[in-house]
């Protein structure tokens, strides 16, 4: 089969959109982390700074999986690896 360039670009754009759906996972994860951190601060207000640091560290690590999706989307949109 023979596809022209525009078809491949369009499919790349759809693929990029689908790849960014990966953002759902980290969103949920970060929300859970923030919720638990809020609960922890409620239980032990004295440890607020430690809890915040740990929460931010965990969230930044959890964010990575979403950013993999972003990288794939950017590759599809701007490097256009599928074009012949």
């Amino acid at each position: 089969m023979d596809f022209n360039e525009n078809f491949i670009l369009g499919c790349s754009a759809i693929g990029a959109g689908l790849a960014v759906i990966a953002g759902i996972g980290p969103g949920i994860g970060q929300g859970i982390a923030a919720g638990h951190a809020a609960a922890a601060v409620g239980r032990n207000p004295g440890a607020k700074s430690d809890i915040t640091t740990t929460m931010l560290l965990g969230q930044a690590v959890a964010e990575t999986t979403g950013l993999y999706g972003l990288v794939i989307a950017l590759l599809l949109l701007f490097v256009k690896p599928l074009l012949p």
């Binding site: 930044a60 690590v61 964010e63 990575t64 950013l67 993999y68 972003l70 990288v71 950017l74």
Partner: peptide
């Protein structure tokens, strides 16, 4: 790979 991609993608998303 995960260490470098994490830093790269975070900064790149800000730049974009």
């Amino acid at each position: 790979i995960s260490l470098s991609l994490r830093l790269f993608a975070n900064v790149l998303s800000g730049v974009v």
